[in-house]
């Protein structure tokens, strides 16, 4: 029998370190990390990339991404990324932020980075609660959803309504790419992979601000086994937060006369 040359079709992304993830069983952070690392690998960006870790469950991303990293204070990752990008426009800068970080304390930073069309990539993990601190209500918590600070379910009359970040940012001229994806099935994971890659490509092309909102599970704080959590993600979360691309390509806006 003739010797067949083996072709590598799947492997461990070189943009991930070999440190084991600290995430809970069934949490989809690990998948999201891998998708980001694969995009960096595919585009051969590892040696030119600087990541910005945020505060939340993903606070330790600097242990997992095998590139230069900065740790930002709570919510400020887009501002930190702006500082890095302005100093080194040739580096690829991404932030990895949860919904407590980005959609609550960091709303000013994300809105203004997007409005500036800052040429950075934001990976936004929306799992509808503050995971690291023990499952409190986030701005993204669904109406009626139970958390430790909405023990009877989120009452919108008292706690208000969730923020839809992609829709919010799509009102701005600054963003070049905005997409919401979900990790509830292999098919959706593949779609997410494409979106994340596209976001990095947007930055490489110098087109401007890109953000991918990744709907993600939190089995521990949702009080659901991993499989049920995926179903909740599909049936409830992805229903409230419609999937799709909200911006695909930079907008041209004509300047007003100087006065």
């Amino acid at each position: 029998m003739a010797v067949q040359h083996e072709k590598r079709v799947f492997g461990y992304p070189s943009s991930l370190t070999d440190a084991p993830f600290h995430y809970c069983p069934g949490c989809t952070h690990g998948i999201a990390h891998r998708l980001v690392a694969e995009a960096i690998d595919d585009l051969r960006l590892k040696e030119h990339t600087v990541g910005v870790a945020s505060v939340g469950c993903s606070v330790f991303t600097y242990n997992y991404f095998n590139c230069d990293m900065q740790q930002a204070s709570h919510g400020r990752a887009p501002a930190v990324a702006t500082g890095i990008k302005r100093v080194s426009p040739e580096t690829i800068v991404f932030t990895y932020q949860g919904d407590g970080d980005l959609a609550s304390i960091g709303t000013a930073e994300i809105i203004h980075a997007a409005a500036r069309g800052e040429n950075i990539t934001v990976i936004f993990i929306n799992n509808t609660n503050f995971g690291m601190t023990g499952g409190q209500m986030a701005p993204t918590t669904l109406p009626g959803q139970k958390t430790t600070t909405t023990p009877l379910g989120r009452d919108v009359k008292k706690a208000g309504y969730p923020l839809r970040v992609c829709e919010l940012l799509s009102a701005l001229d600054g963003p070049a790419y905005l997409a919401r994806v979900s990790l509830h099935s292999p098919k959706e994971v593949l779609r997410a992979k494409k979106a994340i890659r596209k976001a990095f490509e947007t930055q490489v092309a110098g087109a401007g601000f890109s953000l991918v909102e990744v709907l993600s599970t939190c089995p521990t704080n949702w009080g659901l086994p991993p499989k049920k959590a995926l179903e909740y993600l599909r049936d409830e979360v992805a229903k409230y937060y419609p999937l799709g691309e909200f911006r695909d390509g930079p907008r041209e806006v004509e300047a007003c006369s100087t006065r």
């Binding site: 400020r76 501002a79 930190v80 702006t82 500082g83 302005r86 100093v87 930073e109």
Partner: peptide, 26 residues
């Protein structure tokens, strides 16, 4: 050089953090 007006003092000091971390005098 680059001048950037931040959306707040909070954001400005964090931009300083990023730029300082990238090795610049800021």
């Amino acid at each position: 050089g680059t001048y950037l007006q931040a959306e707040s003092e909070v954001s400005a000091i964090n931009m300083v953090y990023g730029a300082a971390g990238a090795g610049a005098r800021v």
